[in-house]
Design a protein around this nucleic acid. Sequence first.
DNA 1: ATGACTATACAATATAGA
Length: 266
Amino acid sequence: MKLATWNVNSLKVRLEQVQHWLVDNSPDCLCLQETKTTNEDFPHSVFTEMGYNSLYNGQKTYNGVAILSKHPVKDPVYDIPGYDDHQKRVVSADIGGIRVVNCYIPNGQDLGTEKFLYKMEWLAALTKYLETLHPKDHPVIVTGDFNIAPTDLDLWDPDGMRDQIFCSKDERDHLQRIFDLGFSDCFRQDNPEVRQYSWWDYRQGMFRQNKGLRIDLVLASAPLKEVHRRSFIDPAPRKSERPSDHTPVISEFSGPLKSPGNTTIP
DNA sequence: ATGACTATACAATATAGA
């Protein structure tokens, strides 16, 4: 199971890039964020023709998430159950025996703002929902654009950004609560020391200078730890013409799962 | 420098992103 996450910052603008990336990389599952597309306008037939099922939860102008999968998509869930949110930020489903939760976590703007409070409330609701999935003994992947850099190794300028948005204590405390449920950060588990980013600001030639943040994550629950093979970031799409400001993050899993049902990951 | 880019909605600017 090769799973990837990519904030495309408008699926309409990036559709051809997504198609090329699927052909070149052949992931089993691609989780998209910021599709900025209504369900009515979602280009599902483009993906069907490429052999991908799609599941989408979108809206006009902002937000929007989708899961593309070569394998059957079972038991879809839209949004965070029990949490009243008009912004379309979550879609999840069972894929090959793994519950995949695709998230676009709120940006938060700046500490102390209304948007930051929304981010905090939203993360609390997500964590509460993830707990109901029993990640300590069920295979669960929670992935997407977290808008949180887990540690200072994930920031190009830790001193300049100290205690600011994307790396504040409050945000990292929320991430820690998710880790406490039994999730781990796949990229960091596989690459303990490396400084690599998944997002670079469009302005000031930040990508050229490699001044970025690692805020796009794949978190795998405890039963997936032993079948996690490798994780990496593909900077290629960020180099293309008219790129998204984010680039894909990929995690690979294989082998038999001890629970539930002793299934083997496709 | 409340800037710099980019996308969207909408028609000259405004909101949002990270």
